[in-house]
Amino acid sequence: MSVLEVRDLHVRVDDQNEHKEILKGVDLTMKTGEIHAVMGPNGTGKSTLSGTIMGNPRYQVTSGDILLDGVSLLDKPVDERARAGLFLAMQYPAEIVGVTNAEFMRAAINARRPDDDPISVRQFIKELDHNLALLDMSEGMAERYLNQGFSGGEKKRNEILQLLMIKPTFAILDEIDSGLDIDAMKVVAKGVNSMRGAAFGSLIITHYQRLLDYIKPDVVHVMMGGRVVKSGDADLARKLEDEGYTGLRDELGLDIQLTDEN
């Protein structure tokens, strides 16, 4: 079993000459075998949390820690964290011309293996074909340049394809459902569910209860104002859907401005 711990995490972004504290003490612990969901209003720091866990250099950790199996990740660059078992399906994946999807996934798999023991072409193709079929993707997608000209939904599916090929220990999925039609959402959920098991944990950031109907979470966290303000079981997400964030904020007696009220 593996454990990913976020302890009293404070994060700042430096935007020109403005220093903005975005995360103000996030605590969160997850284990393999569990699926956690994070919900919260726009601009509250969910993507900041996922990017900071992954090691995006634009986020500055000012205090607190991120630990994988008790070892701090803070001084490790993003590629080392990835090889240590983390994966982040991004809200806005980059497009890269000249590198095919298949070639990229093979490089990512081999980055986790010893130099003298790369995955065989046969094995790779077998897994690729299996996962393409699982996600209802055409074989042509693997030969296209990485995300180049992919539609919004295709990019999301492609993030899940990478997840299935790389098989990380912990996967953070940042709004993997945004912009997906209902069928595509089911397909993506099928992909994530196929990873479920004792050796895999996931943190799913979403705005919609619907995704959680297909991927049932063990724990739901609500983030507001740069903190986790409440955690609970799957019912918490349903309650939020009914009452909205304002209701929860008032119930908890929090003094937080939500972006959509004036």
Partner: peptide, 28 residues
């Protein structure tokens, strides 16, 4: 491009390899 580098490295590719892949596209 920093976001391309970050994306490739977030899948475990070393900085040097990520850089070579981005460049290959640029020279493609």
């Amino acid at each position: 491009n920093e976001s391309q580098m970050y994306y490739l490295m977030s899948r475990g590719l070393s900085k040097d390899l990520a850089e070579r892949l981005v460049i290959r596209g640029f020279l493609g």
